[in-house]
């Protein structure tokens, strides 16, 4: 393969506490630690492993959103991506708009594979990869736990997917969209020398206007609220008491 594009999303760090804004308009993101979406890290790692196996020549990290998204592109480059593309916008982006922007970038870059995390841990949509594949009329393999690229001129990838109750294997014609699940790999940490090197790698900046995409959000948020809190429980003093409570009070045994 000549090129793999990888989408990376800036999200609230998975370890940070989620606070709903007092006006119920959304979730507080100021002064909150931000990171690359964990599923995107897995996508970057997988693309790099394909490159290291000489199955791909170049890995390009793509992010969409405000200026700060460049941090996540730099992280991907510190892991080993060759260059970055950043579409600068402060508009709220919903998955359909993201898929349309990524499709335009795919048309410019002609990758053999577009890898994305299966979902982002902020909106939990789990849609962008499928929608991107649809817009490009490419085959898709979602929730990948194993990715193999066949050698030779036929240009096929064999992908094992996590489906309910087991695993499914698909053989895809390239170019294709692959979305990554947890079991695929364990992403590497960027080393200090590589973080320094990443600073010199190029990031191309684009605007949505360059790509000519209608990004208007389709779904309108009415309100965002805290989930119902669980009622405080009790501390039992022994295994016998626990089993008694589970049988006679909670009636789950």
């Amino acid at each position: 393969m000549k090129r793999i594009l990888v989408a990376v999303k800036r999200v609230i760090d998975y370890n940070a506490r989620i606070r709903v804004k007092a006006d119920k308009s959304g979730v507080e993101t100021t002064n909150v630690k931000m990171s690359m979406n964990p599923f995107c890290e897995i996508a970057v790692e997988e693309a790099l492993r394909l490159k290291e196996k000489k199955l791909a020549e170049e890995v390009v990290a793509v992010s969409l959103g405000p200026k700060a998204c460049q941090d996540q592109i730099r992280t991907a480059m510190a892991m080993g991506a060759d260059r970055g593309i950043h579409v600068l916008t402060d508009t709220e982006l919903q998955p359909l708009a993201v898929a349309k922007l990524l499709a335009k970038i795919a048309e410019r870059e002609s990758p053999d594979m577009f890898m994305l995390g299966k979902q982002a841990i902020d909106d939990d949509c789990n849609q962008t990869g499928q929608m991107l594949a649809a817009l490009l009329s490419w085959p898709q393999a979602t929730f990948a736990s194993k990715v193999e690229v066949e050698a030779g001129d036929e240009r096929r990838a064999v992908v094992t997917r996590e489906v309910d109750g087991g695993l499914q294997t698909l053989r895809l014609r390239l170019p294709a969209v692959v979305t990554t699940d947890l079991r695929l790999n364990e992403p590497r940490y960027a080393t200090l020398p590589n973080i320094m090197k990443a600073k010199k790698k190029p990031i191309q900046q684009l605007t949505p206007q360059d790509l000519g995409v209608d990004m208007a959000p389709r779904l309108q948020t009415v309100k965002v609220e805290e989930p119902l809190k669980r009622k405080g429980g009790i501390i039992v003093s022994s295994v016998e008491e626990l089993v008694d409570k589970l049988r006679n009070e909670a009636k789950v045994l």
Binding site: I18, V27, D122, R218, K223, E225, P227
Partner: peptide, 14 residues
């Protein structure tokens, strides 16, 4: 649910 159920989003379709 969003944020793995740490917040609940009420939304409207167009």
């Amino acid at each position: 649910p969003i944020y793995a159920g740490n917040a609940m989003q009420t939304f409207r379709f167009p």
